[in-house]
């Protein structure tokens, strides 16, 4: 299936929220994984802006003005790109 490989490539070039740098703003590009429904309900949606506030076992981020604490495993499923300054 060639289409999936193209998408995979695109995802590979993104970083996950758990690897992202603290204190920076990002845009959410892709959410996928077993926890994606849970994430979407809490406001993690594609195209939205997110700021990572703290790292750790659970990381803290700000999505559209709401502070959320999410576990590392969940943050792994959120792929982001840095927002241009």
């Amino acid at each position: 299936m060639p289409s999936t490989t193209v998408q995979d490539l695109k995802i590979d070039s993104l970083q996950s929220l758990s690897q992202a740098q603290v204190g920076c703003d990002f845009q959410i590009k892709v959410i996928e994984g077993p926890g994606c429904d849970q994430l979407r309900k809490l406001g993690f949606c594609e195209t939205l802006q997110v700021r990572k506030l703290a790292d750790g076992r659970n990381l803290i981020c700000n999505v559209c003005g709401t502070r959320m604490a999410v576990s590392k495993e969940l943050a792994e499923q959120v792929k982001v790109t840095p927002l241009e300054a």
């Binding site: 077993p34 849970q38 809490l42 659970n58 803290i60 959320m68 604490a69 999410v70 969940l74």
Partner: peptide, 11 residues
């Protein structure tokens, strides 16, 4: 079903 930690931190 696996449940992950997720919590809203209100202002």
């Amino acid at each position: 079903v696996e449940h992950h930690f997720m919590l809203e931190l209100p202002p």
